[in-house]
Write a protein that binds this DNA or RNA. Sequence first.
DNA 1: TTTCATATGTATGCCATCATACAATGTATG
DNA 2: CATACATTGTATGATGGCATACATATGAAA
Lengths: 231, 231
Amino acid sequence: MEKEKIWYLKRLKLFGGPRAEEQIRELDKIAHHKQYLKNQTVFLPGDRRRLVYLLKKGHIKLCRISPQGKSLTVALLEPGEIFGEIEALDNRPTASVAESLNALEPVTVCEIQHKDYVRYLHQFPEIAIKVLMLVGARARQMEARMEDLAFRSVSSRLANLFIELSEKYGEESPHGIRIRMRLTHQNLADLVGANRETVTAFLSEFRREELITQNKGYFFILEKDKLNMIR
Amino acid sequence: MEKEKIWYLKRLKLFGGPRAEEQIRELDKIAHHKQYLKNQTVFLPGDRRRLVYLLKKGHIKLCRISPQGKSLTVALLEPGEIFGEIEALDNRPTASVAESLNALEPVTVCEIQHKDYVRYLHQFPEIAIKVLMLVGARARQMEARMEDLAFRSVSSRLANLFIELSEKYGEESPHGIRIRMRLTHQNLADLVGANRETVTAFLSEFRREELITQNKGYFFILEKDKLNMIR
DNA sequence: TTTCATATGTATGCCATCATACAATGTATG
DNA sequence: CATACATTGTATGATGGCATACATATGAAA
């Protein structure tokens, strides 16, 4: 049963070395299981609780909301990922929103108090270094997305998004690579920083050219290399 | 003389606690002093040396270059800042360029081999945590800039850039807040992800409205709060 | 000082993307 | 099944910012 309880921690790729067992046990001690019903937000901009989260089940999107109410999705998260105030330096609260993504079932997370988290990192410095690498990798991805926003057209960003999605969330299927999360056109628009209508138009085009298909909210990538060539 | 040699490390804000002295001494052992003449690049995309750098003198910009040769500046660095492969996870080399910024004098840095750096972090885990916070803070800044790119107009981004510059690099002067680094219109354009001509046009407008002035490559901010209100 | 390269200033037409509008379809829920 | 709501599809005009073009200014080097 104990084993059952910590399975999710094993997906985290944060642990390793001779102390791995201990690392997992200690993290489990400070992590508090919690469920969010669908379409509930996990945290909002300005949240002062400064929690660190481990995603156990479901999908989460991290967004930024503009003053005019438009939304930009900064990251999509899968079970096993860590998020929240993992790198909180100053006292400023987050500027992002975390919410479940078109969830059909509830989202399950573990919450960790920030002070427990910092104590834990001091206890297991190897893990601090791994978290550093993780945050760094995400920073690089963001750089790449910034470059896209600055230089590339919506169709190009959208094509690129499908390639990234297929790499991170794709699974082979008889009808092409299936993206294993429900995504609306609005979701895609928020991911590429564009208008929903514009996205819909390009999706129609992609479908006409048989690069992708769409079924009950799930997308299938048919021609990955052709998508790669869209300017 | 020894004191002279490590002054630059004291600017780093990475050290602290009872072991601060030791931290600095050990870092100095693995850091190799190096000078770059003006307009030399420190590293290019694909650089496999995977070095970590400490900036001692001069300014550095980190850029991304698009396939069409357009450049987006990801970060501006001042003396005392750390950059390079501070968070290198995978074996992929950087996608960014680091080059000196309109340098009139040579840029001075310290280079650290990546393996020495990792060993150092293991030796002083407190520092790994500080680097984590630092990388995190930069990641948040990038999120904010992504939001800007996605939602805001060039004039708004430009006004916002001046506010950020005045906060990070500004110093009071009789003629307003002086940005203490030489910046061309092209530099600004690269920072906000826009066309040089477009930027020049808005700068003329800002100058006409007496929000900023420009003198020998240096900018002065006159009306910070009015800049804040530009949509 | 003269020369040359770099940086700045301004105008023009063009085009990608947005905002708006509305119809059509899909899907959850009583 | 019927209803309501969310999502998708498509067209339209408006426009911000880009590319292009070229003139002028600035300042470093000779």
